[in-house]
Design a binder for these strands. Structure first.
Lengths: 113, 113
DNA sequence: CTCTTGACTATCGGAAGTCGATATATCATA
DNA sequence: TATGATATATCGACTTCCGATAGTCAAGAG
């Protein structure tokens, strides 16, 4: 099996998970990340924009140029997952699912792994 | 309403989740955290022991003195959750469950929350 | 007995990641 | 015109993470 790279840092993780639902711009991403955890996770601009650039550099997301082009007055920058980014997001999701399932399962029934 | 504090950093999170299953010593914790994610998360000693001390300082875990006392030759230091720590762990687990559920649900059917 | 290996705790320093404050600009509403 | 939400961006300080390193102890190999 292909050795998957290390888990994404928290901010990157939340961003790619949010982007599984479709392209978003930075500010919307900030809100969405908060919504997905009922406000438990609050990502400020300092974290957001730096992380966004890192994700672009790492090839996990790209800025969707079409959208930016198609309105003149648009300040928003939309981002979407690359195929790689999507794979990473799904892999991270699976990791979380497994973690949650195992811990919760252990609590419920004391069922062995 | 009790203002829930910020999400735990990754290492702390994994440690308290692992300790929901019962007390463990540092080295076992290292292994368990890896097991819970099929090796995806690898916590080295540098991360482990610093984090452990921070969690003790924050009152989320305590060293279980009884176990250490009851064998002479025991080098191991066992840790368990405090009531606060347990509450935090469960709250973090719930947060992850919600996140995973929402993202996965959206993928599956586009089903609304 | 000695040598190696694995269990186990521990610390250090640098790198990476996070956060709040701040800045700037647009737009809607009052 | 002034307030507040939208929207992007950067800075510096702080927190967190990680690999390397080090040391002790016990068990098994030679």
């Amino acid at each position: 099996m292909i050795k998957s790279s290390k888990p994404l840092p928290a901010a990157s993780l939340h961003i790619v998970l949010a982007l599984l639902e479709g392209e978003l711009h930075g500010y919307a991403l900030m809100r969405r990340v908060g919504e997905l955890s009922d406000g438990a996770v609050k990502m400020g601009p300092g974290t957001l924009y730096g992380t966004l650039n890192r994700l672009v550099d790492d090839g996990l997301i790209i800025e969707t140029t079409d959208r930016a082009a198609h309105t003149d007055t648009e300040r928003r920058r939309y981002y979407e997952l690359t195929p790689t980014g999507r794979a990473v997001a799904l892999s991270e999701l699976a990791r979380l699912q497994m973690l949650v399932h195992r811990v919760a399962g252990h609590l419920a029934g004391g069922a062995p792994a």
